[in-house]
């Protein structure tokens, strides 16, 4: 499978299993359904339906945006450092919207949470950020890479 990354993509991000990962919602939600067949229960999968897309009108959101623009270097051009790391981290954790660079990884995490239900906690932790690293056996890293 080919992945066409955004032009300004920060990592090469093309490991084939991580890109498969980004379309798993199609496997779960699309495809032919034949009524003569039983479908496996998808209990728990509703999790991936949580809508985190829109800017929600809330005090938290407002404060976050105020902080975000406060950090913006208003004098400089568009090629500044990515910025907003704490904001992003915080928001991702609370399940709200607002990923900047890593938006897809945020979405994938949500899927991952659903998919790893019922597996051991320790294992789950390792799978939470499938797209941060571009390739392979990411079993035991990823902690320090996110700061």
């Amino acid at each position: 499978m080919t992945v066409v990354p955004p032009p300004q993509a920060q990592s090469s991000g093309g490991g084939s299993s991580s890109s498969l990962y980004d379309v798993l919602e199609l496997v779960l939600d699309r495809g032919l359904v034949i009524d003569a067949f039983v479908r496996v229960s998808l209990v728990g999968i509703e999790l991936i339906k949580i809508d985190v897309r829109v800017v929600v009108a809330s005090v938290d959101t407002y404060l976050r945006f105020a902080e975000a623009v406060g950090r913006l270097d208003l004098e400089s051009g568009p090629n500044k450092s990515p910025g907003l790391p704490e904001v992003v981290g915080q928001v991702t954790e609370s399940g709200a919207r607002g990923k900047s660079k890593g938006a897809l990884s945020g979405a994938a995490e949500t899927v991952s949470d659903a998919l790893t239900r019922g597996r051991e906690e320790g294992e789950k932790e390792n799978e939470e950020r499938p797209r941060r690293r571009s390739s392979s056996q990411s079993r035991s890293r990823s902690k320090e890479s996110d700061e």
Binding site: D29, R53, A107
Partner: peptide, 12 residues
């Protein structure tokens, strides 16, 4: 695509 997963748009 399935709606509401953190994307601005998701289209197949």
């Amino acid at each position: 695509g399935p709606a509401g997963q953190g994307w601005l748009s998701n289209v197949s």
